[in-house]
Protein backbone atom coordinates (compact mmCIF):
# COMPACT_ATOMS: atom_id res chain seq x y z
CA UNK A 1 0.00 0.00 0.00
CA UNK A 2 1.45 3.36 -1.01
CA UNK A 3 1.83 6.08 1.58
CA UNK A 4 -0.16 9.28 1.28
CA UNK A 5 1.59 11.81 -0.90
CA UNK A 6 2.32 14.48 1.70
CA UNK A 7 3.75 17.10 -0.62
CA UNK A 8 6.41 14.56 -1.73
CA UNK A 9 8.29 14.86 1.56
CA UNK A 10 7.58 11.68 3.54
CA UNK A 11 8.33 13.45 6.80
CA UNK A 12 5.58 16.03 6.32
CA UNK A 13 2.23 14.84 7.67
CA UNK A 14 -1.14 15.43 6.09
CA UNK A 15 -4.00 16.73 8.16
CA UNK A 16 -6.48 14.15 9.38
CA UNK A 17 -9.77 14.89 11.08
CA UNK A 18 -11.29 12.83 13.86
CA UNK A 19 -14.83 11.82 12.92
CA UNK A 20 -15.72 9.50 15.78
CA UNK A 21 -14.30 8.54 19.17
CA UNK A 22 -15.21 5.41 21.14
CA UNK A 23 -13.92 4.73 24.62
CA UNK A 24 -13.09 1.02 24.78
CA UNK A 25 -11.53 0.90 28.24
CA UNK A 26 -10.72 3.46 30.91
CA UNK A 27 -7.35 4.09 29.24
CA UNK A 28 -8.06 2.98 25.67
CA UNK A 29 -9.92 4.80 22.91
CA UNK A 30 -10.62 3.98 19.30
CA UNK A 31 -11.05 6.81 16.89
CA UNK A 32 -12.05 7.04 13.28
CA UNK A 33 -10.46 9.65 11.07
CA UNK A 34 -10.57 10.82 7.52
CA UNK A 35 -7.70 12.30 5.57
CA UNK A 36 -7.51 13.65 2.06
CA UNK A 37 -5.54 11.34 -0.20
CA UNK A 38 -5.94 8.26 1.99
CA UNK A 39 -5.84 5.23 -0.26
CA UNK A 40 -6.23 2.47 2.26
CA UNK A 41 -3.84 0.11 4.00
CA UNK A 42 -2.97 -3.54 4.41
CA UNK A 43 -3.55 -5.34 7.75
CA UNK A 44 -0.52 -4.94 10.01
CA UNK A 45 0.56 -1.54 8.73
CA UNK A 46 0.79 1.52 10.94
CA UNK A 47 0.56 5.28 10.69
CA UNK A 48 2.68 7.93 12.32
CA UNK A 49 0.21 10.13 14.18
CA UNK A 50 1.15 13.53 15.52
CA UNK A 51 -0.46 15.95 17.88
CA UNK A 52 0.94 19.31 16.98
CA UNK A 53 3.18 20.72 19.64
CA UNK A 54 3.29 17.44 21.51
CA UNK A 55 4.89 14.79 19.31
CA UNK A 56 4.47 11.89 16.95
CA UNK A 57 4.11 8.14 17.56
CA UNK A 58 3.48 5.02 15.45
CA UNK A 59 0.04 3.45 15.88
CA UNK A 60 -1.24 0.32 14.14
CA UNK A 61 -4.39 0.55 12.08
CA UNK A 62 -7.20 -1.43 13.72
CA UNK A 63 -10.08 -1.07 11.26
CA UNK A 64 -11.20 -3.11 8.27
CA UNK A 65 -9.08 -3.00 5.15
CA UNK A 66 -12.21 -3.19 3.02
CA UNK A 67 -13.42 0.25 4.12
CA UNK A 68 -10.93 2.80 2.86
CA UNK A 69 -13.23 5.71 3.66
CA UNK A 70 -12.04 5.87 7.24
CA UNK A 71 -8.85 5.30 9.17
CA UNK A 72 -9.27 3.58 12.52
CA UNK A 73 -6.76 3.55 15.34
CA UNK A 74 -6.93 2.18 18.87
CA UNK A 75 -4.74 3.96 21.38
CA UNK A 76 -3.79 3.31 24.96
CA UNK A 77 -3.09 6.38 27.04
CA UNK A 78 0.40 5.63 28.38
CA UNK A 79 2.67 8.55 27.45
CA UNK A 80 2.50 12.24 26.57
CA UNK A 81 1.68 11.76 22.88
CA UNK A 82 -0.72 8.88 23.36
CA UNK A 83 -2.38 10.87 26.16
CA UNK A 84 -2.84 13.80 23.80
CA UNK A 85 -4.19 11.49 21.09
CA UNK A 86 -6.52 9.72 23.51
CA UNK A 87 -7.85 13.12 24.56
CA UNK A 88 -8.85 14.18 21.04
CA UNK A 89 -12.55 14.67 20.40
CA UNK A 90 -14.65 14.50 17.27
CA UNK A 91 -13.67 17.30 14.91
CA UNK A 92 -10.11 17.56 16.19
CA UNK A 93 -7.27 17.57 13.68
CA UNK A 94 -3.96 15.75 13.86
CA UNK A 95 -1.03 14.92 11.63
CA UNK A 96 -0.82 11.65 9.76
CA UNK A 97 1.95 9.97 7.82
CA UNK A 98 1.54 6.51 6.41
CA UNK A 99 0.62 3.78 6.04
CA UNK A 100 4.00 2.25 6.69
CA UNK A 101 5.48 -1.15 7.32
CA UNK A 102 5.11 -4.67 6.03
CA UNK A 103 1.64 -6.18 6.34
CA UNK A 104 0.52 -9.47 7.81
CA UNK A 105 0.76 -12.05 4.98
CA UNK A 106 -2.96 -12.79 5.13
CA UNK A 107 -3.13 -13.66 1.45
CA UNK A 108 -0.61 -16.47 1.98
CA UNK A 109 -2.91 -17.98 4.62
CA UNK A 110 -5.66 -18.70 2.09
CA UNK A 111 -6.57 -22.37 2.04
CA UNK A 112 -4.84 -22.95 5.35
CA UNK A 113 -5.91 -23.03 8.99
CA UNK A 114 -5.36 -19.73 10.74
CA UNK A 115 -4.49 -19.17 14.38
CA UNK A 116 -4.53 -15.61 15.68
CA UNK A 117 -3.11 -15.07 19.16
CA UNK A 118 -3.36 -11.65 20.77
CA UNK A 119 -2.58 -10.29 24.18
CA UNK A 120 -3.80 -7.06 25.76
CA UNK A 121 -3.86 -4.17 23.31
CA UNK A 122 -2.33 -6.53 20.73
CA UNK A 123 -5.85 -7.37 19.65
CA UNK A 124 -6.02 -4.03 17.83
CA UNK A 125 -3.29 -4.70 15.22
CA UNK A 126 -4.73 -8.15 14.43
CA UNK A 127 -8.32 -6.97 14.17
CA UNK A 128 -7.92 -6.14 10.44
CA UNK A 129 -6.89 -9.79 9.90
CA UNK A 130 -10.01 -10.98 11.69
CA UNK A 131 -12.21 -8.71 9.55
CA UNK A 132 -10.58 -10.12 6.43
CA UNK A 133 -10.99 -13.72 7.61
CA UNK A 134 -14.67 -13.18 8.34
CA UNK A 135 -15.40 -11.24 5.17
CA UNK A 136 -13.86 -14.01 3.09
CA UNK A 137 -14.45 -16.91 5.43
CA UNK A 138 -14.64 -19.51 2.68
CA UNK A 139 -11.09 -18.78 1.58
CA UNK A 140 -9.58 -20.10 4.80
CA UNK A 141 -9.56 -23.36 6.76
CA UNK A 142 -10.27 -23.50 10.47
CA UNK A 143 -9.95 -20.15 12.18
CA UNK A 144 -8.99 -19.77 15.84
CA UNK A 145 -8.61 -16.63 17.91
CA UNK A 146 -6.94 -16.87 21.30
CA UNK A 147 -6.98 -13.67 23.31
CA UNK A 148 -5.45 -12.95 26.70
CA UNK A 149 -6.10 -9.92 28.87
CA UNK A 150 -5.12 -8.79 32.33
CA UNK A 151 -8.60 -9.01 33.86
CA UNK A 152 -12.21 -9.15 32.63
CA UNK A 153 -12.36 -5.34 32.84
CA UNK A 154 -9.34 -5.06 30.52
CA UNK A 155 -10.81 -7.06 27.64
CA UNK A 156 -10.59 -5.01 24.46
CA UNK A 157 -13.42 -5.01 21.88
CA UNK A 158 -15.52 -7.09 24.29
CA UNK A 159 -18.72 -6.76 22.25
CA UNK A 160 -17.01 -7.85 19.04
CA UNK A 161 -15.42 -10.79 20.84
CA UNK A 162 -18.89 -11.84 21.98
CA UNK A 163 -20.12 -11.69 18.38
CA UNK A 164 -17.13 -13.65 17.10
CA UNK A 165 -17.58 -16.26 19.82
CA UNK A 166 -21.15 -16.81 18.69
CA UNK A 167 -20.03 -17.71 15.16
CA UNK A 168 -20.00 -21.39 14.37
CA UNK A 169 -17.18 -21.10 11.85
CA UNK A 170 -14.58 -19.73 14.21
CA UNK A 171 -13.09 -20.82 17.55
CA UNK A 172 -12.59 -18.02 20.05
CA UNK A 173 -11.09 -18.44 23.51
CA UNK A 174 -10.62 -15.52 25.86
CA UNK A 175 -8.57 -15.86 29.01
CA UNK A 176 -7.56 -13.43 31.73
CA UNK A 177 -4.67 -13.43 34.19
CA UNK A 178 -6.90 -12.87 37.20
CA UNK A 179 -10.57 -12.65 37.99
CA UNK A 180 -13.17 -12.92 40.69
CA UNK A 181 -15.73 -15.74 40.56
CA UNK A 182 -18.25 -13.59 38.68
CA UNK A 183 -16.09 -14.14 35.57
CA UNK A 184 -17.22 -17.30 33.81
CA UNK A 185 -14.44 -17.52 31.24
CA UNK A 186 -10.94 -18.95 31.44
CA UNK A 187 -8.26 -17.80 33.85
CA UNK A 188 -4.65 -18.48 32.94
CA UNK A 189 -2.14 -17.70 30.23
CA UNK A 190 -3.20 -17.54 26.61
CA UNK A 191 -0.55 -20.04 25.52
CA UNK A 192 -2.27 -22.77 27.57
CA UNK A 193 -5.09 -22.72 25.00
CA UNK A 194 -2.86 -23.57 22.06
CA UNK A 195 -2.93 -27.22 23.03
CA UNK A 196 -6.72 -27.45 22.88
CA UNK A 197 -7.14 -25.43 19.70
CA UNK A 198 -8.36 -27.18 16.58
CA UNK A 199 -5.88 -26.70 13.74
CA UNK A 200 -3.57 -28.75 11.54
CA UNK A 201 -0.04 -27.66 12.52
CA UNK A 202 1.35 -28.62 9.14
CA UNK A 203 -1.11 -26.38 7.29
CA UNK A 204 -1.45 -23.47 9.69
CA UNK A 205 -0.50 -19.83 9.45
CA UNK A 206 -0.27 -18.05 12.79
CA UNK A 207 -0.41 -14.34 13.55
CA UNK A 208 0.70 -13.14 16.97
CA UNK A 209 0.57 -9.70 18.53
CA UNK A 210 1.09 -8.67 22.12
CA UNK A 211 3.84 -8.11 24.66
CA UNK A 212 7.11 -9.51 23.35
CA UNK A 213 7.43 -12.17 26.05
CA UNK A 214 3.95 -13.43 25.30
CA UNK A 215 4.74 -13.54 21.57
CA UNK A 216 7.95 -15.48 22.23
CA UNK A 217 6.21 -18.08 24.37
CA UNK A 218 3.34 -18.36 21.91
CA UNK A 219 5.67 -18.82 18.93
CA UNK A 220 7.65 -21.48 20.79
CA UNK A 221 4.40 -23.19 21.80
CA UNK A 222 3.25 -23.28 18.19
CA UNK A 223 6.59 -24.69 17.04
CA UNK A 224 6.33 -27.37 19.75
CA UNK A 225 2.95 -28.31 18.27
CA UNK A 226 4.48 -28.63 14.80
CA UNK A 227 3.86 -25.27 13.14
CA UNK A 228 6.78 -24.24 10.90
CA UNK A 229 8.66 -21.14 12.16
CA UNK A 230 8.23 -19.52 8.76
CA UNK A 231 4.45 -19.80 9.10
CA UNK A 232 4.40 -17.89 12.38
CA UNK A 233 4.20 -14.12 12.06
CA UNK A 234 4.68 -11.54 14.80
CA UNK A 235 4.26 -7.80 14.97
CA UNK A 236 7.31 -6.28 16.61
CA UNK A 237 7.44 -3.04 18.50
CA UNK A 238 10.52 -0.88 18.73
CA UNK A 239 11.25 2.83 18.99
CA UNK A 240 9.93 3.81 15.55
CA UNK A 241 10.39 7.49 14.87
CA UNK A 242 10.69 8.21 11.16
CA UNK A 243 8.62 5.28 9.90
CA UNK A 244 10.63 5.02 6.70
CA UNK A 245 13.92 3.40 7.70
CA UNK A 246 15.99 6.58 7.82
CA UNK A 247 16.62 7.44 11.43
CA UNK A 248 17.73 4.02 12.69
CA UNK A 249 16.01 4.26 16.08
CA UNK A 250 14.08 1.04 15.50
CA UNK A 251 17.00 -1.00 14.29
CA UNK A 252 16.78 -4.64 15.28
CA UNK A 253 19.92 -6.42 14.15
CA UNK A 254 20.06 -5.99 10.37
CA UNK A 255 16.42 -4.81 10.17
CA UNK A 256 14.58 -1.57 10.59
CA UNK A 257 11.33 -2.52 12.29
CA UNK A 258 9.46 0.40 10.70
CA UNK A 259 10.44 -0.54 7.16
CA UNK A 260 11.35 -4.24 7.15
CA UNK A 261 8.62 -4.93 9.75
CA UNK A 262 6.75 -4.49 11.97
CA UNK A 263 5.58 -7.95 10.84
CA UNK A 264 8.32 -10.57 10.79
CA UNK A 265 8.20 -14.31 10.67
CA UNK A 266 9.52 -16.34 13.58
CA UNK A 267 12.32 -17.92 11.54
CA UNK A 268 13.76 -14.45 10.97
CA UNK A 269 13.10 -12.88 14.34
CA UNK A 270 13.83 -15.71 16.76
CA UNK A 271 17.65 -15.44 16.58
CA UNK A 272 17.40 -11.69 17.16
CA UNK A 273 15.13 -12.11 20.17
CA UNK A 274 17.83 -14.16 21.83
CA UNK A 275 20.19 -11.17 21.78
CA UNK A 276 19.36 -9.32 24.97
CA UNK A 277 21.05 -6.11 23.86
CA UNK A 278 18.71 -5.66 20.88
Amino acid sequence: MQAIDSHTDPMVPVIAKVTRVTRDLSDVVTFEMEAEGWRGFAPGQFNMLSVFGVGEIPISISGPQSDSSKIIHTIRDVGPVSHALASLRTGAVLGLRGPYGTPWPVEAAKGRDVVVVAGGLGLAPVRPILYELMENRGDYGKVTLLYGARSPGDILFAEELRQWRSRLDMGVEVTVDRADPSWHGHVGVVTAHLRGADFDPKATTAFICGPEIMMRFTANGLVDLGVAPGDIHLSMERNMQCGIGLCGHCQLGPHFVCKDGPVFDWAVIKPLMRVKEL
Binding site: R150, T191, M214
Partner: peptide, 15 residues
Protein backbone atom coordinates in the same frame (compact mmCIF):
# COMPACT_ATOMS: atom_id res chain seq x y z
CA UNK B 1 5.93 -21.69 33.87
CA UNK B 2 2.40 -20.34 33.35
CA UNK B 3 2.39 -18.94 36.88
CA UNK B 4 5.66 -17.13 36.24
CA UNK B 5 4.20 -15.60 33.09
CA UNK B 6 1.08 -14.50 34.97
CA UNK B 7 3.27 -12.92 37.65
CA UNK B 8 4.99 -10.80 35.00
CA UNK B 9 1.70 -8.96 34.50
CA UNK B 10 2.45 -8.70 30.79
CA UNK B 11 -0.68 -6.79 29.87
CA UNK B 12 -0.24 -3.91 32.28
CA UNK B 13 -0.03 -0.45 30.74
CA UNK B 14 3.76 -0.34 31.10
CA UNK B 15 4.12 -3.33 28.82
Amino acid sequence: HDTRVQMLDLYSAGN
